[in-house]
């Protein structure tokens, strides 16, 4: 069985763990970088990217997650998680993990009063996906290798590149588990290539 961890420094951790279990994988709450070696896949949850980023840096997660990513092990970032994996953040802010070739604008859709939900089209999914956007970021630009999965108002809100998957919205807040199925397929195929 695939083992998928959720970075548990702050944010919607339990919500992701529940979804991982419902998709048939083993879920682990990750509080220390040393736990990464037990994992086949990693989720960086929604939360406050500044708070999670600070704790990540302080507790040695940055190098450990970069190393995890260099092994081509799948990582899924939602909202703050998308901000944290970005190569670059718009404005003067310094980026965190810099592992995905995307430029992200934090709070790109505005403040909380502008937060919304909408049924959006996702590349490769037949029915629309109920996407909850909370002070959501978006992707301003992406490298040539990045596959765009969804847009809202022309803004990129979901994307994939090799072993990396990101969404500006929160699949952890709805019952629809199609993103988790997509991610667990990525994890399972990466396990096959790691064992061979």
């Amino acid at each position: 069985m695939a083992v998928i961890g959720v970075v548990a420094l702050q944010g919607a951790v339990e919500e992701h763990l529940k979804q991982i279990i419902n998709t048939g994988s083993e879920a682990i709450m990750v509080k220390h970088p040393r736990q990464l070696k037990e994992l086949d896949g990693l989720i960086i949850p929604g939360g406050e990217s500044t708070a999670i980023g600070k704790l990540m840096a302080h507790y040695g997660f940055i190098e450990a997650i970069k190393d995890f990513s260099n092994q081509q092990k799948p990582i899924f970032g939602t909202c703050a998680g998308m901000v944290l994996v970005a190569k670059e953040l718009e404005g003067s802010e310094s980026a965190h993990l810099k592992i995905m070739d995307i430029v992200v604008k934090r709070n790109g859709f505005g403040r909380q009063i502008d937060s919304f939900e909408a049924n959006i089209e996702i590349e490769g999914m037949k029915a629309p996906f109920q996407a909850v956007f909370i002070r959501a970021p978006y992707i301003i630009s992406a490298g040539d290798q990045v596959e765009i999965l969804a847009r809202v108002d022309e803004k990129i809100v979901a994307a994939r590149c090799d072993h990396l998957l990101v969404s500006a919205f929160h699949p952890e807040l709805t019952d629809d588990n199609r993103f988790y199925k997509m991610f667990s397929e990525m994890v399972e195929s990466s396990m096959v290539s790691h064992s061979s």
Binding site: G46, C79, A80, S115, R135, H170, L173
Partner: peptide, 12 residues
């Protein structure tokens, strides 16, 4: 959207 915002504050 309204409750979800508070979920993002969890553990903080």
């Amino acid at each position: 959207v309204k409750r979800g915002m508070a979920h993002m504050q969890k553990g903080g």
